[in-house]
């Protein structure tokens, strides 16, 4: 058994990942406070954090989308069925027995089939849902569009807020599973190290 190292994550990707992580944690924590899930923190403080973080994450997402398309990296997320059975079996069984991961990441194929699906779900469902409903909330509550009188108290705002809340729960579930799976590299810290240094270790 040999350990093979590959340079997977370029500087922008690492910056993007960790700043997004920080912002998402901030958004989750402040959003759930706004929602009334816990108290303590002032509502106004939570709202401010949320709004600053929302603008920051919006800017970050714009850059990330631009980066993905100009570098062609978006192709990493094209769904595939390649080895999907083997990968699923690994997470459900093989990993417990200390088996090797069936997928060997390379710069051209960073993600295994399940990862591709999970991140696609994040990028095409969760993020747009939060982003879209968040922008609607801003438009509606701040009455930025004169036509946004549909946002008269109650109606439009409630729909947007419910969508936003649904997005937040989906994001929370994603974060929980994602953080855990980050510990499933060759060593518990291997994936995390990779996202810091760019170099991923995997078993040959």
């Amino acid at each position: 058994m040999t350990i093979q190292r590959a340079y997977l994550f370029k500087r922008f990707e690492r910056f993007w990942h960790w700043s997004q992580a920080a912002l998402v944690f901030t958004l989750l924590a402040s959003g759930l406070r706004i929602h009334g899930v816990y108290g303590g923190l002032h509502f106004l403080t939570a709202l401010r954090l949320h709004l600053y973080a929302a603008w920051a994450v919006s800017a970050l997402w714009v850059f990330a989308i631009f980066w993905h398309f100009t570098t062609g990296e978006w192709k990493q997320y094209i769904p595939t069925l390649e080895k999907i059975g083997a990968v699923a079996r690994h997470y459900a069984w093989g990993m417990f027995l200390g088996e090797r991961h069936p997928h060997h990441p390379t710069p051209a194929h960073k993600q295994n089939a399940l990862q591709r699906l999970a991140y696609l779900w994040l990028k095409l469902m969760i993020n747009p849902l939060l982003w879209g409903s968040g922008i609607l909330l801003l438009l509606a509550t701040y009455n930025w569009l004169p036509a946004a009188r549909w946002a008269a108290p109650g109606q439009g705002i409630a729909l947007a807020a419910w969508a936003h809340t649904a997005g937040a729960y989906l994001m929370l579930v994603f974060v929980i599973v994602h953080v855990y799976l980050a510990t499933t590299g060759v060593t518990p810290l291997a994936h995390i190290e990779a996202m810091i240094t760019g170099w991923e270790a995997s078993e040959e």
Partner: peptide, 9 residues
């Protein structure tokens, strides 16, 4: 819709 008011959820 009052963010933080449970009855609106």
């Amino acid at each position: 819709y009052l963010p933080g008011r449970g009855s609106d959820h």
